[in-house]
């Protein structure tokens, strides 16, 4: 069974001309867990992962697998399996030949090619040209590439993009299984909800900087509580909240007050003589804490 190595980012900075894509990023990723690498579009996820894989040269800092830079790994494909967001295929090559080319380069047995195509459910398309593959099939082929060397570390950039519901379910189980076997699994996404069900840890970046790291549950602490309140006379309720200095926004099912105390809101309405039709605490979604963290970084 392949063992996972610790992924370590140390003070990674990358500038593209005037753009600072990654800004002094440091974190580590542990084996045996699925780690979500999250951030909005343009946050620097792909750039960070490409630096980790030696495809992009960092302006500063180092990123390593068990202390070794990717380019110094003696057997890279047998240590790390990586699938990056961009479709990297020659359209005229068949799936079998595409994988075969890299299996030869890495000195892997030819039988691995069919084994991984079977694993990702592409065996029947092995001899079709990749140019005719759908987005989901390409994602699967990218995943098959990561498995060629049966590596202990998986680095996947937005692997869920383009998969159908069945594919999403499959990949979630796949990620969990990989981590359960002791591998290190790092998965990027711009949507927390996409990976929420499969990740143990999260690393959140925004504008190239780390804004949060920890177990998934740690996001709860960042959730700001809200009360949803509504009244037949919504204007009167709004006036009462304004008078009491409780900030609120207008939501679909009523006013969303920035407060953690339903009793307080009820009291304000009662004092103003406003009849309520709804009053409840809003379930604070992890997605919202994620957005709050990300937006907090934006406003700095």
């Amino acid at each position: 069974m392949p063992v996972g190595a610790v992924i370590e980012f140390s003070n990674i900075t990358k500038t593209f001309g005037p753009v600072k894509a990654v800004d002094d990023l440091s974190f580590s990723v542990q084996p045996g867990r699925v780690t979500g690498f999250l951030g909005p579009n343009g946050a620097g996820k792909t750039t960070s992962l490409r630096i980790l894989l030696g495809l992009v040269a960092a302006t500063h800092g180092t990123a390593t697998f068990g202390g070794i830079r990717y380019r110094d790994l003696p057997k890279p494909l047998e240590t790390v399996g990586a699938a990056l967001e961009a479709a990297s295929f020659h359209p005229g090559r068949t799936a079998r030949n595409h994988l075969g080319v890299y299996a030869i380069a890495a000195g892997l047995p030819a039988a691995r090619v069919m084994a991984v195509l079977e694993k990702v459910g592409l065996a029947e398309f092995a001899d079709r040209r990749v140019g005719g593959f759908s987005l989901g099939m390409r994602q699967r082929l990218g995943l098959a590439f990561t498995l060629l060397g049966d590596p202990g570390v998986l680095v996947l950039d937005e692997p869920i993009n383009g998969l159908d519901p069945e594919g999403i379910k499959w990949i979630r189980g796949f990620l969990r299984d990989m981590a359960a076997e002791g591998r290190t699994v790092l998965v990027s996404s711009h949507l927390l909800s996409e990976v929420q069900q499969s990740v143990d840890d999260v690393i959140i970046i925004a504008r190239g900087s780390l804004v949060h790291r920890g177990p998934l549950s740690s996001l709860d602490e960042h959730a700001t509580p809200h009360i949803v309140v509504d009244a037949p006379d919504r204007d009167a309720l709004a006036a009462a909240l304004r008078a009491a200095d409780v900030p609120f926004t207008i939501g679909r099912s009523g006013l969303v007050a920035a407060s953690g105390d339903p009793a307080l809101i009820g009291h304000i309405a009662f004092s103003a003589g406003v009849e309520l039709s709804a009053l409840h605490r809003q379930k604070s979604g992890l997605e919202e804490s994620f957005l709050a963290l990300v937006n907090g970084a934006d406003s700095q």
């Binding site: 894989l53 030696g54 495809l55 990717y70 380019r71 790994l73 890279p76 494909l77 790390v80 990586a82 990056l84 961009a86 479709a87 990297s88 295929f89 020659h90 359209p91 890299y102 380069a105 890495a106 590439f145």
Partner: peptide
């Protein structure tokens, strides 16, 4: 140029980082 155009430099350099 095909390696650039089809972005196959990525898997190529992953398999052979040198």
């Amino acid at each position: 140029t095909g390696e650039f155009r089809h972005q196959t430099l990525t898997p190529t350099f992953l398999a052979t980082p040198r």
